[in-house]
Amino acid sequence: MEQPKISRRFFVSISAMAGAFAFIPASVKSAYISAKNLFIPQKRALPLSVSINKKLYKLQQDTRTTLLDLLREELQLTGSKKGCDHGQCGACTVHVDGERVLSCLTLAAMVQGKEVTTIEGLANGDELHPMQKAFVECDGFQCGYCTPGQIMSAVACVKEGHTGSVEEIKEFMSGNLCRCGAYNGIVKSIQQVAQ
């Protein structure tokens, strides 16, 4: 492969430009920065301490970060899924202080000092959570994309005691959509764990 050539002329002209830039008065530079800020708003950061799957995190986050983006993009906990990002599908369901919520509509700042549990925190080492086992045994999924949200919701559904009938399970699982239509297997999984 041919090495890129740097000519003497190129080196001198670049050095001259860099030198000239250093002599631009600070006032001109700050005027440039404030003009830039006018068009590109600055992000605002906020310190955040939160426990996720029993591990304490101390972070510095853009105020706009949702809990879902924090989990997926910053902490590589990609089990929680971004289906619609508008609170319409339930694929991002996690537990905050033991209750199921939508992480896409929760700002990371809102879980300051709270306990978050995601699908990654459900199993006990290699031992699957009973609901995870039930989903495997009862064919509670097909493509698997909605499954982490379904399982987090299903665990809460059993804990809340909304498993009296198939109709009750369906009503209290209505916040989790499954485009494959694995609903019968999901209901069966919940019935199995509720017993």
């Binding site: 609170g87 199921r100 939508l102 509509l105 809340e160």
Partner: peptide, 8 residues
């Protein structure tokens, strides 16, 4: 809404 949204 849904149980998740009612929790929030």
């Amino acid at each position: 809404a849904s149980p998740q949204i009612r929790n929030m």
